[in-house]
Design a protein around this nucleic acid. Structure first.
Length: 420
DNA sequence: CTTCAAAGTAAACCCTCGGT
DNA sequence: ACCGAGGGTTTACTTTGAAG
């Protein structure tokens, strides 16, 4: 077979898969539409399908309210059970499956199937469950009044999952809203996707020095730990005592919440021969090992070198919540900032110099730099999105296995629709 | 077990469009 | 005019599975 023909076939096959996905999405829409026609689904779900990202969160909030509301109604008779729901227990995933389920999540209001995600408790949905004396199985679709299992434990677990999911989403969104800053102190063990600005920061007299941890063998992406907002964490003092003092203060105040803090070299670069200054006039440093790794693998073109250096200095979370230069915001609530132009500038200068000296082609033109940054930002967002899908799939499995096949199927399709 | 074509996946690259 | 978002196409690399 001719090589070209083979490639063409492969491409056409890929297109076919895309078509299949589209068909699945259509099926999802149809599923939801039919459900809505029959009054099974809440308005929240329907809205959700319109404005995807935000509505996931709304949906989670709605479900959480629903579950909490249900529990508060039904578990009033058993205070301890109620507490177990309100305390947001952590790390109990392994235990919940085996919990006895003496109570059912019964709604007294079987007339309404809505849950409200906009703030008011709203009519309680009968859709989650209706008691059946002797059946572990749930009923049909979410809306169905025939869900008769005793699934309190399961629902508790789902509630936990939803909360965890919401935390994840809040963490990511919080990089725009700085919401997560409050949560950092609550859960210091959680990885910080983007450290954000230090609460108190003395004005710097010098530009910060940026350094990057060495690449690991397993993943080049692992090395990226220096988002611009995190720069205070990794700034090594150049000379002034003030910056040193400032750094100590910042380090002591934030290192405990930064999972990568142990990897950060706080020594000034002049004391560390393995550090390489990326460009003159820029106090931006990278480990020699990491730079060598990039230069060995990614010097086919200037743009590729630039891309890899960008990935080395900015992690996905930072990229995903940044703008190439931050000059244009989208909407009033857009708190994203531009990527640190000091770092970007150093990378740019290094790339230009290296490509010129080594006669590497495809040196990005003046307009290409921003486009490459934009592309890397897009890719980072895509990667994070994929990560979210994994989290969602975990949730879906719980629905499948422990609650209701149809609910699981519905969520599975819906998640594909929303996240795909 | 090895080889290799086919298929899958993600990144790289390029372009257009809408908003400011 | 410029910026940022997003879609489409190409390229590079990995995985799969059938044949020998």
């Amino acid at each position: 077979m001719e090589f070209g023909e083979r490639k063409r076939r492969r491409k056409s096959q890929s297109f076919k898969l895309v078509t299949d996905e589209g068909r699945l999405l259509d099926e999802c829409k149809d599923l939801v539409r039919r459900a809505s026609v029959s009054g099974c689904l809440s308005g929240a779900v329907l809205v959700w399908l319109g404005d995807e990202g935000m509505e996931i969160k709304r949906q989670i909030t709605g479900m959480m309210r629903l579950l909490s509301d249900k529990s508060s109604r039904v578990y009033q008779r058993v205070a301890t059970e109620q507490e177990s729901l309100t305390k947001e227990p952590q790390d109990r995933r392994l235990a919940w499956v085996h919990q006895p389920v003496p109570l059912s999540l019964v709604s007294e209001d079987h007339q309404s199937n809505n849950w409200n995600s906009t703030g008011d408790p709203g009519p309680s949905p009968s859709s989650i469950s209706t008691p059946i004396p002797n059946g572990p199985r749930c009923g049909q679709l979410f809306c169905s009044p025939c869900c008769m299992c005793n699934c309190k434990g399961t629902l508790q677990a789902i509630l936990q999952e939803l909360r965890a999911m919401r935390r994840i989403m809040q963490t990511q969104k919080g990089q725009r809203t700085n919401f997560h800053r409050q949560e950092q102190t609550v859960s210091p063990c959680q990885p910080r996707l983007s450290p954000g600005p230090a609460p108190r920061r003395r004005p710097r007299k010098r530009r910060p020095i940026y350094k990057v941890a060495p690449l690991t063998v397993s993943s080049a992406r692992r090395a990226a730990l220096t988002p611009p907002e995190a720069s205070p964490l990794i700034v090594a003092p150049a000379e002034s005592e003030e910056t040193e003092e400032s750094e100590k203060e910042q380090h002591s105040s934030t290192a405990s919440t930064h999972p990568n803090s142990s990897e950060i070299t706080m020594l000034p670069p002049q004391n560390n021969p393995s550090e390489v200054r990326l460009a003159e006039d820029y106090d931006v440093f990278i480990s020699k090992a990491q730079l060598d790794s990039i230069l060995v693998n990614y010097t086919r073109s200037g743009s590729l070198l630039f891309r890899k250096l960008v990935c080395a200095f900015f992690d996905d979370a930072t990229l995903a919540n940044s703008l190439p230069n931050g000059k244009r915001k989208r909407g009033l609530n857009d708190n994203r900032k531009g990527l640190d132009q000091n770092i970007v500038g150093a990378i740019k200068v290094f790339t230009e110099k290296y490509c010129t000296e080594h006669r590497i082609e495809k040196l990005p033109g003046p307009r290409d730099w921003v486009q490459i940054l934009q592309d890397q930002i897009k890719l980072a967002r895509r990667r994070l999105k994929r990560g979210n899908i994994l989290q969602w799939s975990h949730l879906v499995v719980i629905f499948f296995v422990h609650l209701n096949f149809n609910i699981g199927l519905f969520f599975f399709k819906s998640f594909i629709l929303v996240l795909g």
